[in-house]
Design a protein around this nucleic acid. Structure first.
Lengths: 216, 216
DNA sequence: ACCTCTAAGATAGAGGCACTATCCAACCAT
DNA sequence: ATGGTTGGATAGTGCCTCTATCTTAGAGGT
């Protein structure tokens, strides 16, 4: 198929597709001659992946390029998933491994998770240190509760991804799943906060304005 | 004090402060005359708030402006907090209230949260619908587990904010707290995912590369 | 009083990102 | 042959968050 058809199949404009080609996100089509190139359904799949990473997971072009490079480099799935996670969940730059925190170590023990240094663990350590620096206390009971909850999700999520055969599908499922689950948690947290605020501020002496409508 | 001193006290460059003044985030100092203005410690506080919202919570200038307008408008704390939450946790535009979902309703009942329409609840409903559209299943048991965990955090977080007297302090505590807690959850989720992946992919037949190092 | 130095305010520019529009030569269908 | 479409290259757009420059006026020292 030609660029235009590719565009119609995926919903990306031809101009955007050209841009992705320039940026090396999408491999060039088989060049028939100077003004004609042929694209396959591999291109369709790849473009759908790019679109999801860009507009569902909200990754930048640079981040997407990094993921695709790894995917095409044929690295093991575990390495690839670790990278996708780092980018989708914004765990920060890998290089620097933070010092261990007692809190994170305790969580690993409590949940019986493997005691290995992952990007995620480094990010957690860094974050706990940062919260401490900001004077935000983290009771262990809270971490226990939290880790129990996320432990449940993680299994689900992984089950979905391991079912995928194609690498593009694997990344798509993993990235979208990670993003949506993390956003779900965020929204539940928001609702919990709002509920508590309504109960304690509206009930306990504050003004009686409800939380919802405040701006047309 | 003058702009330069304000700059030194807060760490923002004079140029940035001028920019914030132009954008209406920082109220103008008391103008002594054409080339001299006096700033107070209210300005210091406000600038620290702006800095935190910008560089800790990663809000845009536009979002910060919205929060400060409300704060200076003297709206009730509950309304203000609802708005801060919407922006910090990216709950999306308010206006549109999504249709209710059985899942969200069940969560509200399970946790005994007040059954009112908040921005957070709308966002949760929208998100659940979106996940369903993407074919991601959400067992009720998972939502139960999650909401139990976030329920624990929400109390903590609120306790810290209600202690604040000054509105700028309230917003600062609330925004930073919301952001850091939500990021904490994210990082725990990441660690849970990584742990599961390591256990199932490394142990269960996949290649044996560890999750950590893959890029210099 | 005079000269210099600095601050305030206004305006313009910079740099990054993700596109988007314009050109041009080539080539397929008619 | 010829008009319209395509691929590829290059340049421009719009937004955002600063940052640099310019002008003018008052402050401080002598």
């Amino acid at each position: 198929m030609q660029l235009k058809e590719l565009s119609e199949l995926t919903g990306s404009t031809p101009a955007s597709i050209k841009y992705y080609l320039r940026e090396g996100l999408l491999p060039p089509g088989e060049s028939v001659h100077a003004t004609r190139a042929r694209y396959s359904d591999r291109h369709v799949k790849r473009l759908q992946l790019i679109h999801a990473l860009r507009h569902v997971a909200h990754l930048t072009i640079e981040e997407i390029r990094g993921i695709l490079l790894l995917a095409d480099g044929g690295v093991p799935h575990l390495t690839l998933l670790a990278h996708v996670q780092r980018v989708v969940l914004h765990l920060g730059d890998d290089g620097s491994r933070a010092e261990h925190t007692a809190a994170a170590d305790a969580v690993v023990r409590m949940r019986n998770w493997p005691d290995v240094d992952s990007d995620a663990r480094g990010a957690l350590n860094r974050h706990i240190l940062q919260m401490r620096a900001l004077g935000i206390d983290l009771p262990l009971s809270l971490l226990d509760e939290y880790s129990k909850a996320v432990n449940a999700i993680a299994g689900l999520d992984l089950a979905a991804t391991t079912a995928e055969e194609d690498v593009d599908d694997l990344i798509l499922t993993a990235a979208v799943g990670m993003h949506m689950h993390s956003q779900l948690m965020l929204k539940l947290l928001a609702l919990a906060q709002a509920s508590h605020a309504i109960q304690s501020l509206a009930g306990g002496g504050g003004p009686s304005t409800p939380a919802g409508p405040n701006k047309g």
